[in-house]
């Protein structure tokens, strides 16, 4: 790992504690982590280990109970809901296991969703969405609705949606979990290409074979980082 690379994310002594009535759950326990430009990271760990919590915090969907989270120069751990929403909109692209496409919108409109919450005009939104669908190779499927697309194609639409705002990092939560192995491999190849093109990718998975393709692997166990290499 070339340490001379620019640091994008700096997580310092972050804890996340859930208060579930009687019991207190420490989902993350004093975790520190740096993520650099053009990293390709897989986060692994059994269910309940805290990997989803880490993912949510990195993705600015949640704020830590304790510790500091800096994204570039911005202190995420101190932000309110609106500021977090803006960071998510501008800096982060999400890819979900279940695609999470809106069934009533076509591929093009689905890709456009993040742009609606930015300040772009209509013309520019369309151009950007077309460009993103072009990158994932779905330029012929722009007007298709999700139920007219295969699983692999749906995930590619979701990736296009993640790319459309030119985010600093792409967060993928089990992106191949709902796909057959052939489509899954295609998606993984695609992630490799995105990485080669200079994108920063963070992927949560529990499949060894998937994790092997990434350049850096972080194992989480009981809310602590067990391995980072």
């Amino acid at each position: 790992m070339a340490k001379s690379k620019k640091e994008i994310i700096s997580i310092q002594s972050v804890s996340k504690i859930y208060n579930l009535g009687e019991t207190v759950v420490k989902a993350l326990d004093n975790v520190s982590l740096s993520i650099y430009d053009n990293d390709y990271i897989s986060i692994m760990g059994p269910s309940g280990s805290g990997k989803s919590t880490l993912m949510n915090i990195i993705g600015c969907l949640d704020v830590p109970t304790k510790g500091k989270y800096k994204f570039k120069d911005e202190l995420i751990s101190e932000m309110d809901d609106n500021q977090l929403a803006n960071i998510r909109n501008e800096k982060i692209g999400f890819v979900f296991q279940t695609f999470n496409l809106l069934p009533k919108l076509n591929a093009m409109q689905n890709v456009e969703v993040p742009l609606i919450y930015s300040s772009l005009g209509r013309k520019e939104r369309i151009e950007r969405a077309e460009e993103a669908l072009h990158i994932v190779g779905l330029q012929d499927r722009m007007t298709h609705k999700p139920n007219e697309l295969s699983g692999g194609q749906r995930q590619r639409v979701a990736i296009a949606r993640a790319l459309v705002n030119k985010p600093s990092i792409i967060l993928a939560d089990e992106p191949t979990g709902n796909l057959d192995s052939k489509s899954g491999n295609e998606i993984l190849k695609f992630f490799a290409k995105l990485h080669k093109d200079g994108n920063t990718i963070i992927m949560v998975t529990h499949e060894e074979s998937v994790a092997k393709l990434s350049k850096r692997r972080i194992d989480i166990f009981d809310g602590k980082i067990a391995r980072d290499e």
Partner: peptide, 16 residues
């Protein structure tokens, strides 16, 4: 509910 979650993840504010 999922759509709301998705829109929020994509950057929709509470006011949106």
């Amino acid at each position: 509910t999922r759509e709301i979650g998705l829109r929020k993840a994509m950057g929709a504010t509470n006011f949106n």
